[in-house]
Amino acid sequence: MVAAIVFWGLAVVAVAAGVAVFVVDSMARATYALAVSFIAVGALIILLQQSYLGVITILMMVMEMAVMAVYMVMFMGMNPALMPMDMTHGKKTAIGASTGVFVLLASGALLIPWPERRGVPPEDLTNALGLEIMGEKMLVMAVVGPVMVATIVAGVVLAAGRTRYDRLGDDLRRRPADDPQPGGIGR
């Protein structure tokens, strides 16, 4: 009973905060709302006995929201908490599409006769997950690792304002390098 009350409380918070992201009139408030939604979902995952993954979700998403807030201040060029805004397009289409998707998914969830649970969870789930990652499912993590590295490289390449081609020319032979701030030995 208590678990059900906590579950529905968290569910309402998660969805309401998710809706608030696109209803509130400033980007800072939207970021906070999204962080609240993520925390509620992390708590729901903890409620489903996956403490490790729930805590990771909360920590990771709160940090992401902090980064997002910095980005908004950088790109919006204003105090986002004080600037009301409504920057939307195709609202009716979006509402129609999202309502249709919700009805489809929810009716599938409610109408499908889900099979009975197979197996029982291990006593220490976090320990079992660690053993799984370091054992049978190591290939998954071995793939995720390089994907993360590739993401870092791609992110830096995309976001970098000046690359070596800007400094040294297309053939990389320009000397001295064309830097906005000249300096260094012999220059």
Partner: peptide, 25 residues
């Protein structure tokens, strides 16, 4: 119940992804 809540979150996110103009949103 879990799946209905997940569907609601997915649908709200879809609305945002389709309707917002700012990249961060």
């Amino acid at each position: 119940a879990v799946l209905v809540v997940a569907a609601a979150l997915f649908a709200v996110g879809l609305y945002g992804a389709l309707s917002q103009q700012v990249v961060v949103m």
